[in-house]
């Protein structure tokens, strides 16, 4: 009886929580199909904003710029962040490990304004002293995003690495596998979900960043958040709602597919375990 009540309560909590999280997204989707330009007035169903979105060169180029930077910085961050995680978890003690640990976690909690300001000043100083980077643009945004993203990746991956049962790797080595093979066949598949999660997280963070990018951007490197931010001038255009709807759709689909595959693998594994036991 009481479990029934708690169940009902927890469902109510979940529904409430999801309502809060999805209310703005629901609104965005509804108004992306609004005939009127004004966000508060409903003037009938229309898909014209989707057409206008694809014709808006400035916005489309900002979308591409953002996707490009997000993709490249997430990939670089996964590479560097994974190395950092391995260094943290597997390398034992080395000189400067405390500093290293501190530097890995610090970008997570560094306020964006400070990160942006300090990187801008670094790039200015570097171009004065070294002559590189010559100007600011997508390269400097990429560097900035990679830096804070690798911290997130390192945290996600190191958590997984710590959970990883070392005996698996040792067993493989006993069976004659070399270090490289162990990494490819044992470690990597186990850490892979964490790498994927880290990559997705980094991709999102990069796609969302306004403050740091505004500090370190240069000619021809306007990102999507910068366009969205400056569009407050003339009000958020329904085009932006249309863009957001497409984003939500793509993300939801990707997430659902990922979940479905994970679920299938899980079921498969359970089946195998069961059949192994029954034999």
């Amino acid at each position: 009886m009481s479990t029934n009540k708690t169940n009902k309560l927890s469902w109510a909590i979940l529904l409430g929580g999801f309502a809060f999280l999805y209310l703005p997204i629901f609104i965005l989707i509804v108004y992306s199909f609004n005939e009127s330009r004004l966000v508060t007035v409903w003037a009938g169903f229309s898909t014209k904003w989707y057409g206008e979105l694809f014709e808006d060169e400035q916005m489309m180029s900002a979308v591409w710029m953002s996707l490009k930077i997000a993709f490249l910085s997430a990939s670089a961050a996964v590479a560097l962040g994974t190395l950092a995680a391995i260094a943290l978890v597997r390398s034992g003690a080395f000189k400067g490990k405390t500093l290293f640990t501190g530097m890995i976690t610090a970008p997570l909690v560094m306020p964006e304004v400070i990160t942006g300001l300090s990187l801008l000043l670094l790039f200015v100083t570097m171009s004065q002293v070294l002559g590189w980077p010559e100007g600011r643009g997508s390269l400097t945004i990429w560097i900035a995003h990679t830096t804070f993203n690798m911290a997130y990746v390192a945290v996600v991956v190191s958590a997984r690495l710590r959970e990883l049962d070392r005996r698996l790797e040792e067993a493989a080595m006993d069976l004659g596998a070399n270090k490289f093979q162990v990494f490819i066949y044992i470690t990597l598949p186990i850490v892979a979900p964490a790498l994927l999660a880290g990559w997705l997280l980094a991709f999102t963070l990069s796609l969302d960043d306004l403050v740091i990018a505004s500090f370190v951007s240069g000619p021809g490197s306007t990102t999507l958040p910068m366009v969205v931010f400056s569009s407050v001038r003339l009000g958020v255009s329904p085009k932006i709602n249309a863009l957001a709807t497409l984003l939500v759709l793509a993300v939801a689909m990707a997430a659902f597919i990922a979940w479905w595959f994970m679920r299938r693998n899980e079921l498969q594994r359970q089946k195998e375990i069961r059949s192994a036991f029954s034999q």
Binding site: L120, V124, S127, Q128, G135, R136, G137, G218, P219
Partner: peptide, 9 residues
Amino acid sequence: KLLSGKTGY
């Protein structure tokens, strides 16, 4: 941007 130099513009 102007004061930090090398704006690229």
